[in-house]
């Protein structure tokens, strides 16, 4: 016998954890938006992507969320002409990371929104638990 309200607290917490992992990956991408290689023709920082999957908990019969993996994005690198750069190849081209700041910031907003929704669910489940406990309070 499990308490569904406790379960929803746990599920909400799994959502918070997943979204904060996502935020971590996004901040990595943003911080490395201009990280190039050091040797001529070397590959720069590759954008990382995070993916989620739902995981069924057999005991609770409900679905948690978990991070299924952090991968490298396979889109081509940006090429810039900058002959003086240490990572420039023979023709003077430098490979820049495939990070689009606009995409990352949009993704960050979405992560933020999902995080808030999970927080709201936790808050309401907590309220429901305390309403039940308040039944025991006399003279209130």
């Amino acid at each position: 016998m499990f308490d569904p309200l406790q379960a929803s607290l746990k599920i909400g917490a799994s959502g918070l954890e997943a979204q904060s992992r996502r935020l971590r990956v996004l901040s990595e991408n943003l911080a490395n938006a201009n990280s190039t290689g050091k040797t001529p023709g070397a590959d720069p920082y590759a954008r990382k992507t995070i993916s989620f999957e739902s995981e069924l908990d057999e005991a609770l019969g409900t679905s948690f969320v978990k991070v299924s993996g952090i991968d490298r994005h396979r889109s081509p690198f940006r090429i810039e002409h900058n002959p003086g750069h240490p990572a420039a190849d023979a023709k003077g081209f430098v490979k820049m990371p495939n990070v689009d700041i606009m995409v990352e910031v949009t993704d960050m907003r979405e992560a933020n929104r999902s995080y808030e929704a999970n927080l709201q669910v936790i808050k309401q489940a907590r309220e429901m638990i305390s309403m039940t406990i308040d039944l025991l309070r006399s003279n209130s």
Binding site: D3, P4, L5, A7, S8, L9, I11, G12, S14, G15, A18, Q19, R22, S51, F52, E53, S54, L60, T62, S63, F64, V65, E110, S114, A117, N118, Q120, V121, I122, Q124, A125, M128, T132
Partner: peptide, 27 residues
């Protein structure tokens, strides 16, 4: 009714936690 509501809250929590999971169907 409260037991039913608690179960509903649990499914809602599962839906919200999986709001960004590809292919997840809301319950």
């Amino acid at each position: 009714h409260n037991r039913w509501l608690a179960a509903r809250q649990t499914t809602i929590a599962g839906n919200v936690a999986n709001a960004n999971t590809p292919g997840f169907k809301a319950l």
